[in-house]
């Protein structure tokens, strides 16, 4: 499924040019419900090969602030009621320049009942979460979020400072680890996730896009999840997921690749070795 992302990026390029103009994000603000629905239909067609997701707010839940305090860091919590039947997950920010913010494929060492991540939101937009069930069916929920400028907002530091420590990772487990018992895991990755929309006024140049494309997590070589992502992920991404460790002791390995083909790998002993 990884190939599907590049298609969406191309789809987003025209919009990206638009939002770099003088009136960023206004279209998303003034869209009617019908326009939003039409856009979602169009997005679904391009992602799901003609399949349509069924609305099921009981199976899929999305918590997001109604109005984002910081459009460049909007925290989202996705809750899935039937984790055992879930194969994967799409997070779609309809009016972002590149709508597919993340695509997760879960493996045996994940318990996909909750996923948290932080995204950029460029305008008032619907955010859709689509669960891909193991039987191939699609279940979705939607939330409308008011935010603006999250993609073009300048970062609070210089480009040089922003890439300091790039590729550093940390892992936090919220409890004791036991075999086949889910535990909250938070993965932090240092990466500016430059999306190519932040402009240097003097040079009139945009900071070149450089963003994470893939995060693959395994536990003792068994898949936890693969995640495809792009410019909608907030800088210094933080992802919280439920690890379902197949053994009480093991190694959690994270592989990260970005759009410049830089790669970072980190292996965390589980449980963490204390000093």
């Amino acid at each position: 499924m990884r190939h599907s992302m590049s298609g969406h990026l191309a789809f987003g390029v025209a919009l990206l040019a638009l939002s770099a103009g003088l009136a960023p994000a206004r279209a998303g603000v003034e869209d009617s419900d019908q326009e939003r629905a039409a856009r979602w239909q169009e997005i679904q067609k391009s992602i799901f090969d003609g399949k349509t997701a069924t609305t099921d707010d009981a199976a899929v839940k999305l918590d997001a602030p109604t109005r984002a305090a910081d459009a460049a860091l909007v925290p989202l919590t996705i809750t899935l009621a039937q984790p055992k039947d879930i194969a994967g997950l799409y997070l779609v920010i309809d009016d972002n320049p590149s709508p597919v913010a993340a695509h997760f494929t879960f493996g045996p060492d994940a318990d996909p009942k909750e996923v948290k991540l932080r995204v950029r939101v460029n305008t008032y937009t619907d955010i859709h979460v689509v669960a891909v069930m193991k039987d191939g069916s699609l279940k979705q929920t939607v939330k409308f979020v008011k935010a603006s400028g999250g993609c073009s907002a300048p970062m609070g530091m210089s480009d040089e400072d922003a890439v300091k420590g790039i590729g550093d990772m940390r892992l936090r487990l919220a409890g004791d680890v036991a075999a086949d018992k889910p535990v909250d895991a938070t993965l932090m990755i240092r990466h500016p996730n430059f999306n190519g929309m932040q402009m240097n006024q003097l040079t009139r140049q945009y900071t070149p896009a450089r963003y994470i494309q893939a995060i693959d997590v395994t536990y003792d070589a068994k898949k936890v999840f693969d995640m495809d992502t792009d410019i909608s992920l907030a800088s210094n991404p933080v992802i919280t997921f439920e690890l379902l460790p197949s053994a009480a002791k093991g190694e959690l390995k994270v592989d990260v690749k970005d759009s410049t083909n830089a790669q970072w790998s980190r292996t965390f002993p589980v449980p963490a070795v204390s000093n």
Partner: peptide
């Protein structure tokens, strides 16, 4: 000393808004 760079990074964004 860092104001120049900060204005380069953010000035145009602020000006538009």
């Amino acid at each position: 000393a860092k104001l120049r760079q900060a204005l380069q990074m953010r000035g145009e964004y602020y000006r538009r808004r």
